[in-house]
């Protein structure tokens, strides 16, 4: 049985309020047998320093990515990951994480590739929960393994590949959510982040620069529906019927924007290009725009 929806008024103004919960809602539903709470972080140890009571860890490297091919887990891998955590096809999943929910949004997106029906994001993520002084624990979460079914991964609807991006140039909007320095080609990686090995800097021709952070408040929560419409609609000219592709460096920050466009603003067809700049900036002969001029 899916859990009730959060009727918070801020959430109600979004296109798909069912995809988000507030910290209040989560606090009052912890322990519900149909709820599975998942923490998905950038720092692989952070969960172990303390997590929301009952939460289970999903690591993007180890649990969501294939360990050989640069791809996501296959249906067997996904089913095994879910089964080990007691997740059933009917579970209501709430995901939260560090760093503005980047990896939480990424995990939600991967669950969506496998068509998991009821998966929601905790607005504000780990930071907001902690800042509000809510319960955290280092107690291990007990689970009873389930038997999650094998379901195909749908790579066509919300996922874009390099060829899709090539075909998009001149035909539909591309949204580059990286920092201005990465977009211009001045930087080959995020400011203060590791070099992820791109040979070339710049952006995909025609891509708009809309850094992911513009959608977030400083406490980690999403901006209001009106604020988001002003940015992506009025300012950037994106429309709900557009076929949009988002990208960043390896697909985590663009999952955040994918979530904003799809679930908060109700765009029907947004795809996340998970290959992102680490693929594009290394691919031979793909077109690149580079406004930055090296000194």
């Amino acid at each position: 049985m899916p859990l009730s929806l959060d009727t918070d008024t801020k959430l109600a103004a979004y296109a798909h309020p069912a995809r988000l919960v507030t910290t209040d809602w989560l606090a009052s539903h912890l322990g519900d047998p149909d709820l599975v709470v998942i923490e998905s972080d950038e720092d692989v140890l952070l969960y172990h320093t303390g997590h929301i009571p009952g939460a289970l860890k999903v690591d993007w490297h180890l649990d969501l990515n294939d360990d050989t091919t640069r791809d996501y887990v296959d249906p067997e891998g996904f089913a095994a990951m879910c089964s080990a955590r007691g997740i059933t096809r009917d579970s209501t999943i709430v995901v939260y994480g560090d760093n503005f929910n980047w990896w939480a949004a990424y995990a939600l997106w991967v669950f969506s590739l496998f068509g998991h029906e009821d998966v929601r994001l905790l607005d504000g993520g780990r930071a907001k929960w902690v800042a509000e002084g809510r319960a955290m624990t280092t107690d291990a979460t007990e689970t009873t393994p389930s038997d999650y079914p094998l379901v195909p991964r749908d790579d066509a609807t919300i996922r874009a590949f390099k060829d899709d991006v090539l075909a998009q140039i001149g035909n539909g909007p591309l949204v580059d959510v990286r920092s201005p320095g990465e977009y211009s080609g001045e930087l080959l990686h995020m400011p203060d982040y590791p070099q992820e090995g791109a040979q070339r800097g710049g952006h995909v021709p025609t891509a708009k620069s809309v850094p992911w952070k513009r959608a977030a408040n400083d406490d980690g929560s999403f901006k209001s529906a009106d604020e988001l419409r002003a940015i992506y609609g009025d300012e950037q000219g994106l429309k709900a019927g557009d076929d949009v592709i988002t990208y960043c460096r390896i697909g985590e920050r663009s999952s955040h924007t994918w979530f904003v466009l799809t679930h908060l603003l109700g765009f029907d067809h947004v795809r996340n290009y998970d290959g992102s700049w680490v693929e594009w900036g290394n691919a031979v002969r793909v077109p690149i725009e580079k406004p930055y001029v090296d000194a």
Partner: peptide, 9 residues
């Protein structure tokens, strides 16, 4: 920072 236990480790 304490929020970076892996790097600290």
């Amino acid at each position: 920072p304490d929020e970076a236990p892996t790097s600290k480790g």
